[in-house]
């Protein structure tokens, strides 16, 4: 594991992204509209409501001024309140300084009960059906063969877990320090935040799914249909870059519960796990439980050889 005691430096890893973004900026949606298809696009936009037009013309989240952010938040909150019949809060809390989030999961404790999977769905407003979206996949593996993703079973369904001779490996976004998914996005709709969380701007995502094919962990999910979120189950405490309701045609993924963790709370999966297999904290804080684990336990990274540099550490607590 490479340890980086300084706050996340943007240069080494992100520079290709940055320079590409500059070129992207020369062709924003606004300028495209201004030159080329003024007539055609104008006709389309003319049939939109003012809100839809505003949403369509919205800049990328990172380019918005403070005032524009406030406007976008107000527009989204009104939209969700209308759609779900109850008030929503769309937070925009920035990264906490000197914080680099890390996660650790104890393979010697996880019993494969999938409580985390469903707590995540509930907390993060995933689509419940057609198709359902789950950000956590729990893999059942054979103790004799050890970690072997190809031979693992995602669909195990015995009466009781753990099953004799098996262990369980939950997989979710590894919040890579060197994420291939953000590199391949042709429109810059996904990036790594200063606290290390890889996020998606759903209002900018064009749904091409390049990031899904680039991610070696199957951690990104696509809304093939209109997400099905029953209003009574919707979590109203949201973040713009996290669990706010999504739309059809966009990609989504685990954000370490950005709406919770940026307020100092633990992610929902940490709080639900009945065996306490899930650990979370600040990698830059030597007193955090994740640092203790990295320094004192046997730790491994999933597909370490790909140099994605996960901030998700599997360990054996025994």
């Amino acid at each position: 594991m490479t340890e980086d005691p300084s706050p996340p430096s943007r240069d080494a890893l992100d520079s290709p992204e940055e320079s590409r973004e500059e070129s992207l900026q020369q062709s924003t949606r606004r300028s495209f509209l201004a030159y080329a298809a003024a007539a055609a696009a104008g006709a389309v936009l003319a049939s939109c409501t003012p809100e839809e037009r505003e949403a369509y013309l919205q800049k990328r989240f990172r380019e918005l001024s403070k005032e524009d952010v406030a406007k976008v938040v107000a527009r989204l909150e009104a939209e969700y309140a209308r759609k779900y019949g109850k008030p929503f809060k769309v937070g925009v809390e920035p990264a906490i300084p000197r914080t680099l989030f890390g996660y650790a999961l104890d393979l010697s404790r996880c019993i494969g009960c999938r409580r985390c999977v469903y707590a995540c769905v509930k907390e993060n407003n995933q689509s419940r059906r057609s198709p359902p979206i789950q950000w956590i996949s729990v893999l059942e593996m054979d103790k004799r063969t050890g970690v072997d993703v190809m031979e693992s079973n995602l669909y195990y369904d015995p009466k009781e877990v753990p099953r004799e001779g098996h262990f369980y490996m939950p997989v979710q976004c590894q919040q890579c320090r060197n994420p291939p998914c953000t590199r391949v996005c042709p429109v810059g709709a996904t990036w790594q935040e200063p606290d290390g969380i890889v996020v998606v701007d759903y209002n900018w995502c064009v749904g091409c799914r390049c990031c899904m094919s680039a991610c070696p962990y199957g951690a990104r999910h696509f809304n093939w249909g209109e997400p099905h979120l029953p209003p009574e189950e919707a979590n109203q405490e949201t973040h713009y870059l996290g669990n706010r309701p999504r739309m059809r045609g966009v990609v989504e993924k685990c954000t370490f519960c950005i709406q919770r963790t940026r307020k100092g709370l633990y992610p929902a999966c940490v709080e639900i796990c009945p065996v306490g297999a899930r650990k979370f904290g600040n990698l830059l804080d030597p007193e955090s439980e994740v640092r203790y684990i990295i320094e004192n336990k046997r730790v491994f990274l999933l597909k370490e050889e790909l140099n994605t540099q996960p901030k998700f550490f599997y360990f054996y607590g025994v």
Binding site: C113, R114, Y156, K159
Partner: peptide
């Protein structure tokens, strides 16, 4: 709170349902 002190082995649990297989999604 997690281990019964008189019989401390962690009790097995009923797992929550597995994900839907892609072939079973019809809508």
């Amino acid at each position: 709170n997690c281990h019964n002190p008189h019989a401390p082995h962690f009790k097995p649990l009923r797992p929550l349902p597995p994900p839907v297989r892609p072939a079973e999604i019809h809508e």
